[in-house]
Simulated scan of single mutants.
Amino acid sequence: MAAKILLMSDIHITEPGNQIIGLDPAARFRRCLEHAAEHHADAAHLFIMGDLAHHGRVSQYEILKQCLADQPFPVTLMLGNHDKRGAFAEVFPECAAGFRHGRHSFGETDVLFLDTLDEQAHDRHSGRLCHARLDWLQTQLTASKRPLVILSHHHMLRSGFDGMDAIHLRNGTEVADMIAASGRCQMVINGHIHRIIVSSYRGVTHAMIKSPCHQMPMVLGAGASSLSVAEPGGYGVLLLDPLSPLLHHVDVDLPECPVAFDGES
């Protein structure tokens, strides 16, 4: 049986009364957690892939900690461009040592999670892997021949949304080249864009997932990175088959539709 992993990204927690385009991020996040616990209770792990707090405030990370207190999954927290390392470490001191990257093993597959946050970025929201993080990644890529899935907050490749591509992982092509050259990686999955997108690079699938809160409108080309639309929130369900991993996406709180059997099919 393939291990089941849950993926959520870009939850953008705010304080009560501080909404994003009329949405309450904490309520939307809790709803996704409830949905996952009800429908995917057999999941082995939950990765929350950055942009944990909308403004990177201690008060927002405290709300996140409250949200996570009564959910059933082991959790790994990643950092995104809206996060602040100092405030995060105040609330989650157990996560404060060094960069927020690492490896978890599930059956025959390894999952690497990257730390792409660059708090010194000139444009504030783009990401970068510094030399130390690149060296860490190279060591991980060559440490084994086991199948590998990599999680990143920032996207490495072009998305088609010009505003978001201006704040991607600045050395993303270099990182994608390293990953492809290893011959191990089955899939790279990121958040950041708040949209389901799939591409490939040198034989490696690159997939992006939606946010539990607000989404990027489907307006390709020119446009600001802050464009948002109140489409349903959602999360990813990753099945770690060592030969062919599968990434599903769940939209939460769609209109109720009964499941029916079509006897004429």
Score class of each variant (00 low, 15 high):
229 V>L: 12
236 G>E: 06
246 L>Q: 14
225 S>Q: 09
245 P>Y: 07
237 V>S: 05
216 M>S: 06
213 C>V: 13
214 H>T: 10
256 E>R: 11
255 P>F: 02
237 V>H: 02
249 H>N: 12
224 A>G: 15
216 M>D: 00
235 Y>S: 09
214 H>G: 00
226 S>A: 11
223 G>R: 05
239 L>R: 12
207 A>S: 14
227 L>G: 08
204 V>Q: 04
262 D>C: 06
240 L>H: 09
222 A>D: 14
257 C>V: 15
219 V>H: 14
245 P>E: 07
240 L>D: 11
223 G>T: 05
212 P>V: 03
225 S>D: 12
254 L>P: 00
259 V>M: 11
217 P>Q: 04
235 Y>F: 15
252 V>N: 08
206 H>L: 05
243 L>C: 08
250 V>S: 06
262 D>Y: 04
219 V>Q: 15
231 E>L: 13
237 V>E: 03
237 V>D: 05
246 L>I: 13
244 S>D: 13
206 H>D: 04
239 L>M: 14
216 M>C: 11
259 V>I: 13
205 T>V: 15
207 A>Q: 11
241 D>K: 07
254 L>T: 13
224 A>H: 14
250 V>C: 12
235 Y>P: 08
244 S>Y: 03
228 S>V: 03
219 V>E: 14
209 I>Q: 00
239 L>V: 04
246 L>W: 01
214 H>K: 01
254 L>A: 13
212 P>C: 04
209 I>E: 01
251 D>W: 07
207 A>W: 01
229 V>R: 06
214 H>D: 11
245 P>K: 06
242 P>R: 05
